[in-house]
Amino acid sequence: MQLHETPFGLYQVTSFRQSFQPMPSILSISGVSKTYATGFKALKEVNLDIQRGEIFALLGPNGAGKTTLISIICGIVNRSSGTVTVDGHDINKDYRAARSLIGLVPQELTIDAFESVWRTVNYSRGLFGKPANPAFVEKVLRDLSLWDKKDAKAITLSGGMKRRLMIAKALSHEPRVLFLDEPTAGVDVELRQDMWAMVRRLREDGVTIILTTHYIEEAEEMADRVGVINRGEIILVEGKAELMRKLGRKQIRIELREPLSSVPDGLSRYALELSGDGTELTYTYDNQSDRPGVASLIRDLEASGIQFRDLDTKNSSLEEIFVNLLRQEP
């Protein structure tokens, strides 16, 4: 894979392509760096454009800088350099306009435990300068199965319910951009499904959603585009399908009519794996490698007199792509 040698090459191609999109990006991050007081460089010259209405997954291992990046955009942490605009509003010069567009569901469950659910959510709405709208807040609570608990104090809620409450707070002021920082870490199946249903509904309403996750299946299931961040650097940004196509590995399993005792020499350049009982050959290749393609393999199988019963191919998951990418990092 050539990616690590020119990590920004791929990215630049992406942003070039973006400049031809009819709609300007809703979130634009350019040259953002963050050095914490400890001297630790958590972000290094991050550039990223998020398109209006998309679901963007920011993938990265622990400590990559995902939360730091989100915190900077939302105004929770000061950046060391760079600029960020939300729908054209600079997050500093025009912080009111920028922030009122954003909803944030942070990674940690952090709620004033002694307030009721109803008060907590209405407080959030007020904080963002929106006029009281009990009907809307009721709808948010109902959508999140929190309506029954509206008079309960946050401290009495289960972990999953607290997470729902955090989401309700973020949605209470009708944001146009929603950040979900590791939304499903430690969350049960039901909540996860509810959450994805909600994300899809929001997207239909034109809300842009940016989520971070370690669960790559989630990015795979939900995201339109994926950004990979590692050690404070964005290593690549790609449409999910393109990413899978470009970086995904393919495997071909060939079921043989007659078992083989070993792989014939004529096929050595394919580095085939033979199963224990000798009835199956596996060929692994990725779209970027210069290994020969399927057509030539089939020709060569025939030339070696090997007959096969069946053949099936499998694309690698985003997880495998991700692991591969990080392995490539110096």
Binding site: L104, P106, T110, D112, S124, G129
Partner: peptide, 18 residues
């Protein structure tokens, strides 16, 4: 101090408030 301690200060800092 309390919102700082429990972490709920994030909301205050992210709100459009001077």
């Amino acid at each position: 101090y309390f919102p700082k301690f429990v972490g709920s200060i994030y909301e205050l800092l992210s709100a459009p408030i001077s």
